[in-house]
Amino acid sequence: MTAVSESPAVQGEGGKPLMTLDGVSQVFDTKAGPIRAVDQANLSINPGEVLCLVGESGSGKTTAARMAAGLTRPSGGQVTYDGQDIWSLKKNDFKDFRRSVQYVHQDPYASLNPTRTIQQTLTAPLLKHGVVKGKQAAAERAYELLTKVDLTPPENYLSKYPHQLSGGQRQRVAVARALTLDPKIIIADESTSMLDVSIRISVLAMLGRLRDDLGVGFLFITHDLAIAKYFGWRGRTAVMYLGRIVEFGPTPRIINAPTHPYTRALIDAIPEPDPDLTRTKNAESLRSLEIPSLAHLPSGCAFHPRCGQFEEGLCDGKVPQLVQIRPGQSAACHVVARDGADEPAA
């Protein structure tokens, strides 16, 4: 039995993607030699769509996000927004692009200016970018924004400083600040990973409402597949490993019918909040626990030294490309590409 329900928004096909990353790479030059933090990644975000980027630390998630936000220029490939290469935009158009794509960082303790009240934090971009005229209008807009992120009643928060707020409240302020310029895409980089479980869900629910009500698209970055599942169920998920996208597809397929051995290992490794279930889970055994260094990537498939399905001569030769395994779902694995993937027994 397959328990996967294909929801209509999964593919988001038909519409033109709002943002694309076409074969983008980012190479950092270090003393140890060049490091390919992201290698030829292809991604696209449709208007109002959630695209989840998951992977362990060092997989290149944040580097990819920074390129998408226009914070760093890719060493290769192209980032387009609304059909145009963002690095060939005129100064004013680039400014518009930066307004449309906003970033919410991981650490709400570090991302808010400690010397500004919440009102100052929220009105500064409004006034600077001339979104509203005059301080009065800016204050009213700040009030509205706080309501949108469930910090109610807003008058309790406007005159406070970040240190007077809890982590969850600060992250809501960070989201409100991202909303000041009416973005089309919010890049949420591990935005809920520092929050307590109980609070995480309410922040995610708030973000989900923004997605539905305001039609904001999300590039949602997390190391936690369970969170990606919860927030990105109607969207798509890309799994990254050592700078490459190794599996890509509709989120329900990635979670319930993963094909790449790395994705499968990740999902098997997650403990469940259910004692019987979590103790009977069969984890795919890995051949090695250590993650290779980006400076000395293994030949061929970068996952081969750890992969349980490693085949000599096949996996350590050429780098596998992302190929379609099932409709809408692709993986970069020689073995899966050759043998196909089994449907999971539900």
């Binding site: 919860y230 329900p252 319930n256």
Partner: peptide, 23 residues
């Protein structure tokens, strides 16, 4: 109960989760 309901499981379809209001 609230803590358990707030944890997203990885197995199965989209869960109904609930947060605990406040801190």
């Amino acid at each position: 109960l609230g803590l358990i309901k707030a944890v997203p499981p990885i197995v199965g379809d989209l869960p109904d989760l609930e947060s605990i209001p406040g801190g």
